[in-house]
Nucleic acid binder design. Structure first.
Lengths: 105, 105
DNA sequence: TCGCGTGTAACGTTACGCGTGACAGGTTTT
DNA sequence: AAAACCTGTCACGCGTAACGTTACACGCGA
C-alpha cells in the first residue's frame, strides 16, 4: 500500500466527497432531510459536502451511526486528508533527535 | 485485532503518555530543552505531557520530524484516544440509514 | 407563479491550541 | 545557606474553526 509513501500523486478524498459521491446518491434523501436526520444544521452539512469544513468528532459520530461505518471511518478519512495537505505546505522543519527504543518490557 | 471492537477494556494511551514514558526518558533532554528544540513553548509541551492538551496537526508534524515516526503516528494516536472517549460519553444517537453500496466502478 | 431544495454570506457563540508572563515547589550546584 | 535550574500550573489575550440562526439568491418542477 501507499499510505506511508512520502509523496502521493494526489490528495486523499475529502470526507465530504465520499459522502457526496458515494453515499448521498444512494440513500434517497435530500441534503435538507439528511441534515435534519443527523441533527445538524443544513449549512453544516452543506459546508461538509462542499469540502469547506472538516469532519469534527461529533460529526464523525453522527455519520458513523447513520451509515453504520463507525466514527473512526470518517475521522481517519479527515486525518488522511489533513496529513496530506500538511506535508505539502512549509513543514515546521524540526531537527531529528537520535534515540533508541526502550528494550524493557 | 481489537481496534473495531465496540468496547475496549481501557483507554488507548494518550500521545502525551507515549512521549512521557517511552521517549522522554531515552533522549537525554529536559522538557525545557525539548520544547525549545521543537519550537514550542514549555507550557505547550508540558500540557501535552500531562495529557491536558491534545496533539494538534502542527504538534504532530514537529514530533514526527523530531522522532522520525511521522505526523500520522501522533495524529492517529490522538484520534484513537478521542474516539475511545467519544464512545463512552452520551453518543448523539442517530438512527441508522439503510443503504446499498454503489456497485458501479 | 409559487414552493422547495440548495449554496452561501454574515453574525455571534463556544471550544481549543498556543505564546507570554508570572508564581511556587523541588532538586542540584556552588 | 544561597543561587540556579527544572517543572507544573494559572491567567491573559489571540487566532482559528465548527456550529446554529437568520437571510438572501438561484434553479427547478408543479
Amino acid at each position: 500500500m501507499a499510505a506511508e509513501t512520502p509523496t502521493m500523486a494526489f490528495a486523499p478524498a475529502h470526507p465530504g466527497a465520499i459522502l457526496r459521491e458515494d453515499i448521498l446518491p444512494n440513500i434517497g434523501m435530500t441534503v435538507t432531510e439528511l441534515a435534519a436526520h443527523l441533527g445538524v444544521s443544513r449549512q453544516a452539512l452543506s459546508g461538509l459536502l462542499n469540502e469547506r469544513r472538516s469532519v469534527s468528532l461529533e460529526m464523525a459520530q453522527k455519520l458513523g451511526q447513520a451509515f453504520q461505518n463507525g466514527t473512526r471511518f470518517w475521522l481517519a478519512l479527515q486525518m488522511q486528508h489533513d496529513i496530506w495537505w500538511a506535508e505539502r505546505g512549509e513543514a515546521p522543519r524540526v531537527a531529528p533527535i537520535e534515540w533508541h527504543e526502550d528494550d524493557a518490557a
